[in-house]
Design a protein around this nucleic acid. Structure first.
Lengths: 258, 258
DNA sequence: CTAGGACTTATGGCCTGACCTTTGTACCAT
DNA sequence: ATGGTACAAAGGTCAGGCCATAAGTCCTAG
């Protein structure tokens, strides 16, 4: 907005001579290529697993240098749309983006903007009940099996704080999967992992806390199993609220590490 | 998970001889450099706006080729951590990541995984009330001024459906900003924009619908102004629920375009 | 003395061409 | 069969250059 107004001279008169003249941006050729390929992939013209042309062939076919092509492919790789392997029979292959890319972006956002730990917990306190509600509405029998398995694993890991916390994340991830809503799943999972990354050193997990956590999970899972959306949401709400108060009254690092 | 198990032979016995042997990955040098620079930036050792060394200097100082350095910088650029400008006095400058990167990632996730329009609306129905609640709790007077301004602009744009929808997004974005929770803000804003991108052609916005929307916004804003979190959440919940039913009973494109 | 234009310079964008590294395949020797 | 050697195909990296862009510098016309 600062240097976009230079289509007008000092008198403020449009100098474009009545034509549709505006300060035009000259995109990098690698971006043009990246956008083109991204569109092809997202439109489904390149199905998952199919191979893109090899770099040298792509370069000659689009009339650009190999480095430029590599630049474009790198963009798609970062976005999680392709995976690139070296070696014979290597190349770039179309890939379905998964939660990992989303998680990395959230990480960068949180660290880069100095988001407070409090804000993360607050967000989670708001979002997890939503996930629990949708899980209660949409969960399948398979989801319940998975949740039971994680819950059992978690119960066994009492005493091993890092493992317990890891299982805790897995449990929340399993709830996210049970929502069968990939947006909610991605958000909640990423948030859980980011919070874990800022929390695993803490020693707040006493034997008593672990027991309370297991009981809360049990209550939530029961509601999810019964398909009781309101109960699942309220139980989850109470659970994450207690968790937040516990953490905040104990140790307030404020800033997220790394 | 498919080819990660080749540390075991056919008999399923760990061949690692008791050492910590696992299939190890050899990172690309450009990734190593990118990770290093990212860490420097996220640790705050490079404050916003400060310039990185120019490409040629960076290349010689780390002992890598210029192309490799460019590759690393490109990664950071995609992640929104730096901007890079050509020309004299150009170069790469540290930047605070903003919502835009997050939005792009959400876009890719939605399009790439073929997330149903229904899921987007469902997610929004769950998340917007959370935002409204936090907005009621944390809004400042400035936030209220901004919300009033957007609401007024929106009321004026009745009859111009695209503009009305655009203002609608702006209103929800303003609510997100009023939460003063950057995580919630990023999520809700991105979701609104993605939904808009899949909606703007629709002709469902009758005069009657617009009126109802404005009234709902008015009720929500009143609750936010009063600091009534429960009221804000429930009003918003009703609003987005009505919106969803309206859209879904009218036209179900199922898949998100592009 | 000032305004505008021509030159200079520093920087990223892009190209060509080469070499190295990784990986898969085929073939051969033990 | 087992292992080794050679080859081939692809990405990864480097070197050096030229072009495009944008900011500074200087010089001249008015």
């Amino acid at each position: 907005m600062t240097q976009a107004d230079n289509a007008q001279d000092d008198s403020g008169v449009d100098i474009g001579l009545g034509l549709g003249l505006a300060p035009m941006s000259v995109p990098k050729s690698s971006d043009v290529l990246a956008n083109h390929l991204r569109q092809q992939i997202l439109e489904g013209k390149l199905v998952e697993g199919s191979a893109l042309p090899v770099e040298r062939a792509l370069a000659t076919s689009v009339g650009l240098g190999r480095q430029t092509v590599r630049d474009a492919l790198r963009v798609l790789e970062i976005e999680g749309l392709i995976v690139t392997r070296p070696g014979r029979a290597g190349g770039s292959f179309v890939r379905r983006p998964d939660t990992a890319t989303f998680e990395r972006t959230l990480n960068v956002l949180v660290s880069g903007r100095g988001v407070k730990f409090h804000s993360l917990l607050e967000a989670r306190e708001g979002l997890e009940p939503v996930a629990a509600r949708l899980a209660a509405l949409h969960r399948t029998d398979d989801d319940l099996v998975a949740l039971d398995r994680v819950a059992a694993k978690m119960a066994e890991s009492r005493g091993n704080v890092p493992l317990f916390l890891q299982c805790n994340v897995e449990w929340h991830v399993a709830v996210g999967a049970a929502t069968h809503n990939e947006v909610i799943e991605a958000i909640v999972n990423s948030l859980s992992k980011v919070i874990l990354r800022s929390t695993d050193i803490e020693e707040f997990n006493s034997e008593e806390t672990m027991g309370a956590t297991l009981e809360a999970h049990s209550r939530i899972l029961k509601a999810i199993r019964a398909g009781d959306a309101d109960k699942a949401a309220s139980s989850m709400s109470k659970h994450v609220h207690v968790y937040r108060e516990l953490v905040e009254n104990l140790n307030v690092p404020e800033d997220i590490p790394m």
